[in-house]
Computed example of a mutant assay.
Amino acid sequence: MREQNIGLPVVEGGIVFLGNRRPTMRAFKMAGRNCVITRMHVPQAYTAYNVPDPNWITLHIPLTWSGDYVFDGYQVSEGDAFLADCLNGYSTAGENRDAITLGATREAIESAMRSMNGGCDSSFEFGASIIQPSTVLLQAVAGQIHAAMEVERSLGARQELHFMPEVAERDFIDVLAMEFRSAESANAVTRGLSRRAVDVVAEARQLTLAHSSSVPSLSEICAITRVGQTRLFECFQEVHGLAPYKCLMAFRLSAARERLTDKDNPPHSVKQVALETGFTKSGRFAECFLRQFGELPSEVLNQTQNEALMNT
């Protein structure tokens, strides 16, 4: 997840892969000064969260998936898109999911929307809502991706991050602003999950990951989030589809794997990573890691260290 978020306006993000397999993701990323387009395919079953930069507005468009697909506790239907604007970000869960996420700075979107209103000094409330993306927007996204792939083919090399020309970006922001304006005028209503559940889970996750050397107990989490254990369980089920302990353990293990695969600053030992992520016993850490990812942490670290040596 760390590598996938490079170049994107993301403050924080995490993903848990469900099933004993090596994690895989494929992503296309394109960015200008004021907007980004990402398309990401996650083959495995997973649950995740993302916290965008607060100066940006995000539109998430699910394309295809297998079985159930859930966004902030809401069961996604074909044609749904999700305008996300919350301090604690948003959660997603599904399998074999292919989705597009669009981001734009508030300043650029509001400027474009004011121009459409004849320059009136209007204020805009975006909030969190479910909208139906227009054909014009989807065609604009497809056009931007196609143009980037044509450039990539002409260069003869795969690009990790494509750059959007200024003129193309300006046109795209106008299309996106028109979409948001239509959604606002249609008084789109948020359905499904209450934001309180997202906030409770985000606070519990932040407590666990921020104090990894002394992981709080569920009773301590309940006291700080001001909910009972039954409500805590309900919130985690709504947001991630997992029980609190299992979910928080999985995010700790995912954070450990991110650290073990950091080729720019590889850790010295598995024990170091275990302690950093709240595991006092290396054997217990290795057992849990193997169960979640299908490989030992020592194997992952050896591969990272070898790759780091090859790149020096």
Results as ranks from 00 to 15, higher is better:
138 L>S: 10
139 Q>D: 14
140 A>W: 01
141 V>I: 15
142 A>P: 01
142 A>S: 15
144 Q>S: 14
144 Q>C: 13
147 A>K: 11
148 A>N: 05
149 M>P: 02
150 E>Q: 12
151 V>M: 10
158 R>F: 10
159 Q>F: 05
161 L>D: 04
164 M>K: 06
167 V>W: 10
167 V>H: 13
167 V>G: 07
168 A>C: 06
168 A>W: 03
171 D>G: 06
173 I>V: 15
173 I>E: 06
176 L>D: 00
176 L>N: 03
177 A>L: 00
178 M>F: 03
179 E>R: 09
182 S>K: 14
185 S>V: 11
187 N>G: 09
191 R>Q: 14
192 G>H: 04
192 G>W: 02
193 L>M: 12
193 L>T: 11
193 L>P: 02
193 L>G: 15
194 S>C: 08
196 R>N: 07
202 A>Y: 07
203 E>Q: 15
204 A>W: 00
205 R>C: 01
205 R>Y: 03
205 R>S: 06
205 R>E: 10
205 R>P: 00
208 T>V: 14
212 S>Q: 03
212 S>L: 03
213 S>V: 09
214 S>R: 14
215 V>G: 07
215 V>Q: 05
216 P>C: 08
218 L>D: 08
218 L>K: 11
220 E>A: 15
222 C>M: 07
222 C>E: 14
223 A>C: 03
226 R>D: 12
226 R>K: 12
227 V>I: 08
227 V>Y: 09
227 V>H: 10
228 G>Y: 05
228 G>N: 13
230 T>K: 13
231 R>Y: 06
233 F>K: 10
233 F>P: 00
233 F>Y: 11
237 Q>I: 00
238 E>R: 05
238 E>P: 00
239 V>I: 11
239 V>A: 04
240 H>P: 00
242 L>Y: 04
242 L>E: 07
242 L>T: 00
243 A>L: 08
243 A>R: 14
245 Y>K: 14
247 C>L: 02
248 L>W: 07
249 M>I: 04
249 M>G: 08
251 F>M: 04
252 R>I: 03
252 R>Q: 07
253 L>M: 06
255 A>L: 06
260 L>S: 06
261 T>W: 00
262 D>M: 02
263 K>V: 15
263 K>P: 03
263 K>W: 08
264 D>P: 02
264 D>C: 09
265 N>M: 08
265 N>T: 13
265 N>S: 13
266 P>Y: 06
270 V>S: 09
270 V>G: 10
270 V>M: 04
272 Q>W: 02
273 V>K: 04
274 A>P: 00
276 E>L: 10
276 E>R: 09
277 T>N: 13
277 T>F: 00
277 T>E: 09
278 G>M: 05
278 G>P: 04
279 F>T: 07
280 T>H: 13
281 K>R: 14
284 R>D: 09
285 F>E: 05
